[in-house]
């Protein structure tokens, strides 16, 4: 028990890196999701084409490949520096899950009943007003459970940043194991438990979201 607490306090050095990357990546994933999701339901074929390409490319390759690509390839290709490894991690996760979540936004927007659009047109609302005051408020509740699930995925994705040299929970777990080999199982178990504790509110959120999305609303 003593060594478990020891390990926990050692691992907590990486807690802030994990949490800050999780929060920033979640924020930017939502921005990307709404931006790309809404771009895919506009009329302009060019805008739609470009965003579809973005979504399919990032959904079609894996997060770890994208992370390495941003980490190794982008500086070589464009000669730009993405700032710090922290930003590389945040951008890779945000682009990846933003692409997945934009599908949630798109399908929720499309699943709002046609009659709502027609009624809004009859009331002489503009396209933007229709989306903002009629469609989106109804679509949002449909998105909730999926968003909860994707936030858990984002949290799990943050573990990858230890591979590009960031000092997150997993990084400290690795260091601890390599210096105390026989305590390896306990070290990784504690790492898993720390992730699980962070995930608990997200699990609760996605279950709550499921209830909200099912409640009320005719049809």
């Amino acid at each position: 028990m003593d060594s478990a607490l020891n390990i926990l306090s050692y691992l907590s050095q990486g807690l802030w890196t994990t949490v800050s990357i999780f929060l920033a990546a979640t924020f930017f994933s939502f921005v990307m999701a709404f931006f790309a999701g809404l771009c895919r339901v506009v009329k302009n074929p060019l805008v739609r084409g470009v965003t579809t390409a973005y979504v399919e490319i990032f959904r079609g390759t894996s997060l770890i490949v994208q992370l390495f690509w941003l980490y190794y390839a982008v500086p070589m290709l464009f000669g730009i520096n993405l700032g710090s490894n922290w930003w590389v991690g945040v951008i890779a996760i945000a682009l990846n899950y933003g692409a997945y979540m934009s599908e949630v936004v798109r399908s929720s927007v499309l699943s709002v009943d046609e009659g709502q659009t027609e009624a809004a047109i009859a009331l002489n609302l503009s396209r933007v007003q229709r989306m903002r005051h009629v469609i989106l408020p109804q679509a949002l509740r449909l998105m909730l459970p999926e968003f909860g699930n994707y936030m858990i995925q984002i949290l799990k994705g943050t573990a990858l940043v230890s591979l590009i040299g960031l000092t997150d929970i997993l990084y400290y777990g690795d260091i601890y194991r390599s210096t105390n080999l026989d305590e390896g199982p306990l070290a990784y178990l504690m790492v898993l438990i720390m992730y699980f504790i962070i995930a608990l509110p997200l699990i609760w959120l996605s279950k709550k979201g499921e209830k909200i999305s099912k409640k009320g609303v005719a049809g």
């Binding site: 858990i152 949290l155 799990k156 994705g157 943050t158 573990a159 990858l160 997993l170 777990g173 690795d174 194991r177 080999l181 026989d182 305590e183 390896g184 199982p185 070290a187 990784y188 178990l189 790492v191 898993l192 992730y195 699980f196 995930a199 997200l202 699990i203």
Partner: peptide
């Protein structure tokens, strides 16, 4: 629920590096 909401990368490390111990 525990296995599902924790990173697969850590689980891989657990089985590879820590399981022998």
């Amino acid at each position: 629920e525990f296995i599902r909401s924790t990173p697969p990368l850590v689980q891989i490390f657990f089985l590879y590096f820590a399981w022998p111990e």
